[in-house]
Amino acid sequence: MPALTPAEVLFDGEAQPAVLPPCDHYAGSEKLIRKSLALQAQLGPVFDITLDCEDGAQVGREVEHAEMVASFVGGEEDRFGRVGVRIHDFAHRAWRDDVRIILRQAKKPPAFVMLPKIRSVFDAAEIIAFIESSRAEYGIAQAIPCHLLIKTHGALADAFELAALPGVESLSFGLMDFVSAHNGAIPDSAMRSPGQFDHPLVRRAKLEIAAACHAHGKVPSHNVSTEVREMSVVASDAARARNEFGYTRMWSIHPEQIKPITAAFTPRDEEIALAAEILLAAQRADWGPTRHGDTLHDRASYRYYWSVLRRAQATGHAMPDECAAWFAA
């Protein structure tokens, strides 16, 4: 009988928590979309690309913009199937057209649909239901994951309910709109570093979103860094988001930000090696308790080390040979 893999034994039949590439890069114009797809072809599927129908579209030309976006989804330049789309928000007249155009005209379904400016569970549930019904209407067999952008008081209050919605894969934090929604009660210094990590209300919002995601096996995605020259600032933002706030993904708005974000969220070589050693020993012990050095391990710690390998694999890191079969299963 073949040895059981971590995925088969560590989750008691439940779905594994979602794991996504650690960087979500935004592009709105045709020129920037082509550049982003070329960079993805060069680096591999270690970052996602979100084609923006919201901020990218000119007023009055929403249909034409959605058609342009649809032409890239699943096309020849979409080599890895890791291209998503951001539609207009629930209050905008164009969001249903965005969904219909993209699902009808794209050569393949998008990797995900980002729903911006969510204000309540009702908003999100209605859009998700519309995407599902449109998918069925156009004969798309596989469900399309939804990512929700939280930047309002209402959405933050509903964060745990939003993360629990079927079809939701990720929650993102919209920092600048969230700060602005406080009408000057939070200083503008909280829109950038280091203030964004220090102000209590902003810290609370980041933590609530991350906690809601982890409670329901979803991916917390950190807000953008507005710094586009000093990549050390971007790297620091990403490291703090990961190490202090529990985020596993972050937005990018400039191509130069992609590499430092990806690097910050990639487990270190020594973490990967340790995880592999512990999990291989656990497999040899039929997933019973084991000892590594002076530390005892059981299924609780095995789940942690399995998450390390899954995150490493999502960032394109080569797996130790003995573990490669776990990801081919």
Rank of each mutant, 00 (worst) to 15 (best):
D321R: 10
L309W: 07
P267F: 13
D237A: 10
R291A: 10
E277C: 08
A212D: 09
V113F: 13
S180V: 11
R34K: 14
R96I: 04
I128F: 09
I128Y: 10
R86D: 10
T266K: 03
G56R: 07
L201I: 15
L162F: 00
F245Q: 02
V219K: 08
A157W: 07
R119L: 09
R86H: 10
W251D: 05
N223P: 03
G60Q: 12
S120G: 08
F197S: 03
R104H: 09
W95C: 11
H88Y: 14
V308W: 01
V69L: 04
T248K: 01
Y305T: 10
H214G: 10
H297D: 03
F245L: 06
V228S: 07
L10H: 11
E208G: 00
R82H: 13
A211P: 00
A325V: 11
S307F: 00
R284M: 03
I102G: 06
A263I: 03
R299N: 12
R303H: 11
A239C: 00
A125T: 15
S133M: 15
T50Y: 04
A129D: 06
Q16V: 05
P187L: 08
D12Y: 11
D98F: 12
S236F: 01
Q40P: 05
I128V: 09
D48F: 00
G13D: 12
E14W: 06
